[in-house]
Design a protein around this nucleic acid. Structure first.
Lengths: 145, 145
DNA sequence: TTCCATGCAAACACTTTGCACCGTG
DNA sequence: CACGGTGCAAAGTGTTTGCATGGAA
């Protein structure tokens, strides 16, 4: 599964380029990252990759299912590699802490939406904003969104 | 509850201006609308309100709890008035249909996140992307996000 | 009369696009 | 050696800000 990405690209008719390897590597290393952060991370230890290439590449990598994006803030989207299981995110508006939750945890929700609304949710894209227990009551400084 | 907004503004020390009335009216009339759509709607039958005023006003109206915003697409946020009960949205990526679901429907989810993660979700801000039953299987043209 | 709110224009943050050149397959 | 991918620069979208003027309280 280490070099699976090479096959994935080829299968779909995409070419293998050093830029694509660098972008994927940066996403995996950063965990959750905006296009700009990916760009900066690459620059830290490699030759520069153009920002527009980063955008185009993230799109391709998501297309072939190696990474996904969600919205952890009102600003830029964040990308993360799909390390095994599908998950969604909880984001605290107060302290900005991000918690990943396995999609299995919300099987009930998925079932309910399916039965009652005929709707199949894309759990991997989901981010739920709210307040974590450390911040209940104490609404303070820098908040996300 | 019709002119409740006047009191709400005054209570919090905000002034009552025709622009604020127009923006609130447009949001209520449109249902779900982006800042730009609100701006356009006002222009349709009134003197123009500056776009930056629309932005500032939407922020104020949300602050005092008359409207809320959520993200129905990757582009602009959409605002809606809080007509009674809190709700969240289901958005079909294929046909862009938006379904409102009462937050009571997901009491189980809210309970689970609270117990297991100490997290209090902001259901009113939530939007879940996915596929509606009309579009299952048949992934076609113009998709959101 | 005092400030808050508005209009306007410029600046911003993020993303996309057109085109010539480059390098993978 | 053809065609997809990249770099670069410019243009696009959506949003914010500084400042002078205007109007609600």
């Amino acid at each position: 599964m280490n070099s699976d990405w090479r096959a994935r690209l080829r299968e779909r008719g995409y070419r293998l380029t050093p830029q694509r390897e660098l972008v994927l590597g940066a996403v995996e290393e950063l965990g959750h990252a905006t296009p700009d952060q990916v760009h900066a991370e690459i620059r830290r230890h490699s030759a520069a990759v153009n920002l527009s290439t980063v955008y185009r590449t993230l799109e391709v990598l998501e297309e072939i299912g190696l990474i996904r994006h969600t919205h952890l803030s009102d600003r830029a989207p964040t990308y993360h590699s799909i390390g095994g299981r599908e998950h969604f995110h909880l984001v605290c508006r107060n302290c900005s802490t991000v918690t990943s939750v396995d999609s299995g945890e919300v099987a009930d929700l998925t079932g309910l939406l399916g039965e009652r609304y005929g709707f199949t949710p894309d759990i991997g894209h989901l981010t739920i904003f709210g307040t974590c227990h450390h911040c209940d009551g104490a609404t303070s400084e820098g908040s996300v969104e």
